[in-house]
Design a binder for these strands. Structure first.
Lengths: 187, 187
DNA sequence: GCTCTAAAAGGACATTTGTCCCGGTAAAAC
DNA sequence: GTTTTACCGGGACAAATGTCCTTTTAGAGC
């Protein structure tokens, strides 16, 4: 649900930024701001220092599908930087966020020169692969009711922290269906 | 659909195997063989040299969801090796396959010592992230009909090469629904 | 050629989910 | 205080999908 990566954030703030302060900067965005848009060139890698963003993809038919919510330490822009090519999803602040920004070039150099950094990135990537695999499989083979229950268990403040529309977009359903199932469950 | 990674395969067979022939071996499996099972310890990283496998995940309710079909050059076991922990999906040969097998330890050493190899793996991982993201979003926001048409476009030999049950498991639907939509389309 | 088995096909019905739309509520504007 | 606007919830119906089950087909093995 809200993905985090404290180890990566810790390494960046405690070790890296001390050594190479140049070029690595921290930006802030207010709620609702689009930090990275779909189909744009990407020239930085970003790591969230504080706050929560949503990462979503807009389909040709207009629906938005939320891949994940990103919290502290989560990184994005790394896929585009490594593969080249345009961004394939949009990152938007849900509340005020603080973000560490590393120029693509610096990121690539770090990968080559800093073994610890390299390893942290490898682990971050494999994490994404794993949770994506598990989530997709779960999504395709369980009812909406199951999905909601699971979400609420993992993340009890769900309905306090997130808009219903966002929850629906995360589950890949309409708000109408979400409401219906919620009513059925509460009875 | 059938994922490949010719660059990685090429590097392994043309360059790497020459230099470090020890420990890296090629195995063969016949159709239907389980190469890597779910929830097992993983002590090798595998790269497909020839043939096609399916990579699927079995849910608690018994349904199988196929993540991808893997063709030449595709690797697996790398996520478990990097993260530690048990395998989260099952790899099964669809036709006779030939597979290069690298012991986990050797894989980790290569990542540290061989820059080119490291980069190829980083790219392989980001590829997986990207296609998983796009596929999940597409799956959640399009009808079965759309999904089938798209599949057939990407992979015209679909129904010749794969069992209907596998196609259904890849799409996250039942064979019944698959048939129904196929009939509707053909009329 | 015959038998056995596994895969494929599709009918009938139940359930789930989406679509469309209307009425209520609450905050903002005047 | 009244009007306006936007959001939210939910009713009614339609469409999509799953479930269960029976029949058909196609091969493999003998």
């Amino acid at each position: 649900m809200i993905r985090k990566n404290p180890k990566l954030l810790h390494y960046l703030t405690e070790t890296l930024i001390q050594e190479i302060p140049v070029d690595i900067m921290v930006n802030t965005y207010k709620a609702g701001a689009v930090i990275l848009d779909q189909n744009k060139r990407v020239s930085n890698v970003y790591i969230i220092k504080q706050g929560v963003t949503k990462c979503y993809l807009t389909e040709d038919n207009g629906t938005q599908f939320i891949q994940e919510f990103f919290g502290e330490g989560e990184l994005f822009g790394e896929v585009e930087t490594l593969k080249g090519g345009l961004s394939f999803c949009c990152i938007e602040a849900i509340n005020p966020v603080e973000i560490i920004q590393i120029p693509a070039k610096v990121f690539m150099t770090l990968l080559d020169t800093d073994k610890k950094f390299n390893r942290l990135i490898l682990e971050a990537l494999t994490n994404k692969i794993q949770y994506k695999a598990i989530r997709h499989a779960y999504n395709q083979s369980h009812t909406i009711e199951d999905k909601i229950q699971r979400l609420e268990k993992d993340f009890p403040e769900l309905f306090q922290k997130l808009a219903k529309q966002d929850i629906a977009n995360y589950l890949g359903i309409t708000p109408r269906s979400l409401n219906r199932v919620l009513n059925k469950t509460k009875l």
